[in-house]
């Protein structure tokens, strides 16, 4: 059978022989450890179910973590926002705290799929799926998020910048480990964020491009203290555009500067020509547009006037 045929004709059913619903994190980790890589974690299931139908990987057992206690909260702890991995996209998009103190993340979460998908798809899942177009992952990367990963052996903290490895692959082993927390600094006075998305339709569509921007500025002086620019899907993983960030650090906020900054934003972009997402050339040009718009919007939120 040709690969194209296979792509269009997935198996009708998923193939698993055991479905477990642990009621504590310890129990879930023990279940994974016992099955030595033959089990896989499922949360919302909006990626895992299609992946299993496509036979992207085998799993004899699904360990459903969706009912683990205390994993679906959104709270502020000191200067940080702390989220459980089971927070859904709908929940994050609706959260006052996320809208006010991490606006780009609320906007990214609202752009995912449909209400049906957002009601069940989790932020932890969005990260662990490791897709370069992930609408929640790109803003979390710009927000300097770090995640906690637990396994039978203990816990580790990983900055999101070091989390993504390749398409569909992260430093987390989904047969052994569970992402247990997402943490990032809350935005405040003199800061702003923006989420820009290019897609073929307004809803229910994967993005052709995603850009998340977070800025800190001295509005009185009109100076950009620092800017974070995260991009996807223009490389195998979502990433931070360090050249643009370096260019903007300490720069005077003006329209002209933003145009110049946007010109630097394609240094690490290597998008493929794609029937789904447009040509490489087109997307390289549009990256600049989204970066410029994102910076302008975030700087206005931070109190800067651009002329």
């Amino acid at each position: 059978m040709s690969p194209a045929f296979h792509e269009l004709h997935w198996a009708r059913d998923i193939e698993v022989s055991e479905y477990l619903m642990p009621s504590s994190l310890e129990e879930a980790l023990a279940m994974l450890a016992q099955r030595q890589g033959k089990a896989r974690v499922i949360a919302g299931g909006t990626d895992v179910v299609p992946e299993l139908r496509r036979r992207d990987y085998q799993a004899e057992t699904l360990v459903d973590i969706s009912r683990l206690p205390d994993m679906d909260g959104i709270a502020q702890e000191g200067g940080d926002i702390v989220m459980g991995p089971l927070v859904t996209h709908a929940q994050a998009a609706d959260s006052d705290l996320i809208q006010k103190k991490a606006g780009a993340l609320a906007a990214g979460c609202l752009a995912v799929g449909s209400p049906q998908i957002r009601n069940v798809a989790t932020l932890g899942g969005n990260l662990v799926s490791g897709q370069p177009a992930a609408d929640a992952s790109v803003p979390l990367l710009a927000l300097e998020a770090q995640v906690t990963i637990a396994s039978g052996e203990g816990e580790r903290q990983v900055p999101l910048r070091e989390f993504f490895v390749s398409v569909g692959e992260t430093v987390l082993d989904p047969g052994r480990e569970i992402l247990t927390q997402i943490r990032f600094p809350a935005l405040g006075e003199g800061q702003g964020s923006s989420y820009q998305r290019l897609s073929k339709r307004k809803a229910l569509t994967l993005p052709m491009l995603v850009c998340a921007v977070v800025v800190s500025a001295d509005a009185a002086e009109g100076v950009i203290n620092n800017a974070a620019v995260a991009l996807g899907p223009v490389a195998p993983v979502p990433f931070r555009e360090s050249q643009t960030e370096a260019f903007l650090a300490g720069a005077k906020a003006s329209r002209e500067i933003l145009v110049q900054a946007a010109e630097t934003a394609t240094a690490q972009c290597t998008p493929r020509d794609s029937l789904l997402r447009g040509s490489c050339d087109y997307r390289q040009e549009m990256v600049k547009v989204l970066v410029r718009r994102g910076l302008a919007s975030a700087l206005r939120q931070a109190g800067c006037t651009l002329d």
Binding site: Y19, I42, D64, V120
Partner: peptide, 15 residues
């Protein structure tokens, strides 16, 4: 009370 795609939901989740 909330809409979900039942094609993506393992039936165990209805428990």
């Amino acid at each position: 009370g909330e809409p979900f795609n039942s094609c993506l939901l393992p039936a165990m989740k209805a428990d």
